[in-house]
Amino acid sequence: MENRKEYEEVSMPRSLRHKDVICFAILAVVITLIPVFVESKYHLIVLNIIGLNTIVVVGLNLLIGFAGQISLGHAAFYGLGSYFSGILTVNYGFPHWPAMVVAMVTTGGIAYLIGYPALKLRGHYLVMATLGFGIIINILMGELEQFTGGHDGLIGIPPLSIGSLTFDNDLKSFYLIWTFVFFCMLAARNLLRSRVGRALRAIHGSEVAANSLGVNTASYKVKVFVLSAMFASVSGSLYAHYITFISPSTYDFYYSIQVVTMVIVGGMGSLWGSLFGAAVLSLISEALHVAKQYHVIAYGVFLSLMLIFLPEGVLVSIHHFYQNRKLKKLLAAEKGGLTG
């Protein structure tokens, strides 16, 4: 059973390919139509935040779910994207699109410098290295005042624009952000269906086995790390231009934890799960603000219960539940057939 499933995954029958196309088509339609039904400004803002988180989570899921590496420092890459975009456009008058590309490339470069030695580290050493890096970057955001505006933050970041179209309200930003979400997910999906994707999955299964079959595991891990940092950077840039104000507290240790939680809740190694995880946790985080001072407890309890009872993520758990039921029905039917 298990082996067959794996085989089908790898060989990708036509039906599955169609399934993906249909899913992406549905996503496109939903993105186009949502603003028709959503009128309140607040709901649009929440949706935009979900979109931004999704981009980070999709990238991070490539690293955690497929390459099997944990990063507790992704807030740093998200922040680097925001701050490079913000500083270049505000302090140096850079045009925004090139600034975003510079941010992405520079963040990728920094991720390479961190990742190259860090990914040679195994297990908890990598957790510590990324965690430490995240804390360093977060402190620098507050302390390098002449560039970053310090703890008060950086204000007046211009909104993005194409020609005469300026993305200066929540609705326009919605379409911009979700277009990015769509293409990021498409890119991730294509990557996973390629040779690289199969290599990554092999690394997750067993690094030793993958290595002995000729997969250069170290190089793949670094590449995925850099890629996921670039995803985070793009999202960070979009955030900066959308909110037009950034400050260090957005990019603290808790953000790093939050995005990894989204990966886990959505299901490690599940592309659509990333979207789901980002949506559910962003919504819950918003909803829990109602609980005000109990916010910390509520979030902690939620996360704990989730991980105790649904450790594979909600979507995968539901999927397994239905499969088990189907299997039980089948077995029951077979039994009935035998006795009857």
Binding site: I257, V260, Y294
Partner: peptide
């Protein structure tokens, strides 16, 4: 339910939040 290390690590983060709250 899961004994996977990464799940347990995040479980401790969740528990830590609960206690801190």
């Amino acid at each position: 339910r899961s004994k996977e290390i990464i799940i347990l690590i995040f479980l401790t983060i969740g528990l830590s939040g609960t206690l801190r709250g």
